[in-house]
């Protein structure tokens, strides 16, 4: 009897443990999906982005761009400043298709997919960081910790997903499910970059107004400040074509 009691106890503990694992996996996925939903809640959005690059000596450079996004996979970024880069356009389409338009050449060029780990136009964001693809499509989440105001998830790339990162640590707001902070760990397990975002509710949508990415090795920082944000502009797919990119 004694043995049986012990066995039952162990079984109960094991079941509870398995259940907790299962439930945490479930909730981790749910959290990530909810976060994606919050981030891509609007049909479309438009904003003016000011990009401030700060090097290790504290020297800054500034750029401006207009960004348009429709759904989860279509994004067009057109630079407006500095003058030398005004008109340069960048188009991201479903299926990891990316185009760049160079006005001085009046030509567009498609960008290969495996350049995703390259930095995007001198910022600390790589093409991978910039791509308009929901996190839940790319990563397998695991709930690491639940804090009073945020969830801490560990994200690992799904099999078949190309990523320069071994894992990400994602901090998600517990109440509104927006992304507060991301820590990027390289394949050597070293924290390589850190993204801190400030979200605000605008027109009913939680949207980032400031995103600051720091490359810890280079001690280089990119701060993106989003202004003039508008949602549900009813952009047609036509706005996200190569023809439009060239205009």
């Amino acid at each position: 009897m004694k043995m049986n009691k012990k066995k039952i106890q162990s079984l109960l503990i094991l079941t509870a443990f398995m259940f907790s694992l299962f439930s945490s996996a479930q909730s981790a996925s749910e959290i990530l999906e909810k976060m994606d939903e919050v981030m891509y809640a609007s049909k479309d959005q438009k904003s003016v982005t000011t990009i401030v690059l700060t090097d290790r000596n504290g020297k800054t450079r500034e750029r401006k761009a207009i960004t348009m996004q429709k759904g989860r996979h279509m994004r067009l970024t057109r630079f407006t400043a500095p003058a030398s880069q005004a008109g340069i356009g960048f188009l991201s389409l479903p299926g990891e298709v990316m185009y760049v338009y160079l006005p001085a050449f009046k030509k567009e060029r498609r960008i290969a997919t495996h350049v995703k780990n390259q930095n995007f136009a001198g910022t600390d964001f790589t093409y991978e960081d910039m791509e308009a693809k929901p996190y839940s499509e790319k990563y397998i989440p695991e709930l690491k910790e639940t804090l009073s105001d945020q969830y801490v998830l560990v994200l690992k790339p799904k099999p078949g997903i190309r990523s320069d990162y071994a894992w990400l640590v994602l901090y998600v707001d517990r109440n509104n499910f927006y992304m507060k902070r991301v820590e990027y760990f390289n394949r050597a397990g070293i924290k390589a970059k850190e993204l801190v975002s400030t979200f605000e509710q605008k027109q009913g949508y939680w949207t980032p107004v400031v995103m600051e990415m720091t490359d810890l090795r280079k001690q280089h920082k990119t701060r993106m400040i989003m202004t003039e944000i508008s949602f549900d502009n009813n952009f047609s797919d036509e706005e996200f074509t190569v023809r439009k990119l060239k205009q």
Binding site: S84, Q85, I88, V100, L102, A104, F105, N119, A121, G122
Partner: peptide, 27 residues
């Protein structure tokens, strides 16, 4: 060259600036 204008430095500073947009950030 890959922009179809030959393997040479472009004479136009704007073209250089455009190409720089693509190059910038390379390790």
């Amino acid at each position: 060259d890959v922009m179809g204008e030959g393997k040479k430095i472009p004479d136009d500073p704007e073209k250089v600036a455009n190409l720089w947009f693509l190059l910038e950030g390379q390790e």
